[in-house]
């Protein structure tokens, strides 16, 4: 790989920069490719894929809150076979690492998906046990350390791809959960998924989301995400992919200072489709300005007196 001050290897996978688009905000890459050259991205984490096609929740599925966005999409996706046949070939023709976010109702769903995707050209698998918008599965596996450890172990056994476990912030102790994922054999952790939230209209006396509650994302959750990345950094040895409210290169640097090896940009893509691309440019300027050989030199180097 050509030397670049932004390049980083995560679990053996080369990323030309640490900027990955977050699951659920970038579909399977095709739409955004009409607006900018997605070859530029370090990676793409695709919309959560399930065994069978899912319709998701009824609308409205989005509401704006102060500095944030609530969503209750509920994992609408075409199912793993359609993903592999219709969407993966396009993604693989691009120069970004392909991370497949997987979700299921049962442990065997997750295992099936990991096994099925192991036979394809995807770069990594991201175990989504942190979706607050589905009734079964999802968060049910992602709250308690023992279930996190066991599902990670079972999926890891069947996965030939590096396994990222995506952690929920809606838990008692995220550091303990990260450790459980590490014990279970996770190659990396990503955090945070959305924070459970709700919005109400005083005039109509109704919730703004049909689903009543949803997941909060965007700048409003950045302080929560930074604290959690920092806690997890101090608890595990495996790489951390940090996210939550990243809109600018400086936001990304803050996550790296707190210990993240790479970052994901989610809601930022919705606010401006060029956000991820602008962050990559901004990071390049940051390393120049600070005369860094590689951005990774500042990973976890938060200055504390």
């Amino acid at each position: 790989m050509i030397y670049s001050p932004l390049a980083v290897k995560i679990c053996g996978v080369d990323f030309k920069n640490p900027v990955i688009t977050a699951s659920g905000t970038f579909a399977f890459g095709f739409e955004f490719s009409k607006l900018f050259d997605i070859d530029k991205l370090g990676g793409i984490s695709v919309k959560g894929v399930t065994r069978e096609k899912r319709e998701g929740n009824p609308g409205p599925r989005i509401a704006e809150t102060y500095g944030g966005v609530l969503n209750s999409v509920g994992l609408q996706n075409p199912g793993v076979e359609v993903f592999i046949n219709n969407f993966l070939p396009f993604l693989q023709s691009k120069k970004a690492a392909v991370i497949v976010n997987i979700a299921g109702n049962t442990e065997s769903d997750y295992c099936y998906l990991a096994e099925r995707l192991s036979g394809t050209g995807v770069s990594m698998i991201e175990l989504n046990i942190s979706c607050p918008n589905v009734k079964e599965g999802g968060l049910a596996f992602g709250v308690k350390p023992d279930t996190i450890q066991s599902i990670t172990r079972e999926v890891k056994k069947r996965s030939k791809k590096p396994l990222i476990v995506k952690l929920s912030p809606n838990v008692a102790d995220i550091a303990e959960n990260a450790r459980a994922a590490e014990y279970g054999g996770a190659d990396a952790v990503s955090l945070i998924n959305t924070v459970r939230g709700m919005a109400v209209d005083a005039d109509t006396r109704r919730p703004l989301l049909k689903n009543i509650t949803g997941g909060l994302s965007g700048p409003a959750i950045k302080p929560i995400a930074l604290a959690m990345v920092w806690q997890v950094y101090n608890a595990v040895k495996i790489p951390i992919i940090g996210m939550g409210g990243i809109m600018t290169a400086n936001d990304a640097v803050e996550f790296i200072l707190c210990g993240a090896t790479a970052v994901q940009v989610g809601t930022g893509n919705l606010i401006n489709p060029l956000t991820a691309s602008n962050i990559i440019d901004g990071l390049r300027k940051y390393v120049e300005k600070n005369k860094l050989g590689n951005l990774q030199e500042i990973r976890g180097k938060l200055l504390i007196d």
Partner: peptide, 9 residues
């Protein structure tokens, strides 16, 4: 959200 078909909201 995105307006371009990528977020399913």
């Amino acid at each position: 959200g995105c307006g371009i078909g990528a977020c399913y909201v």
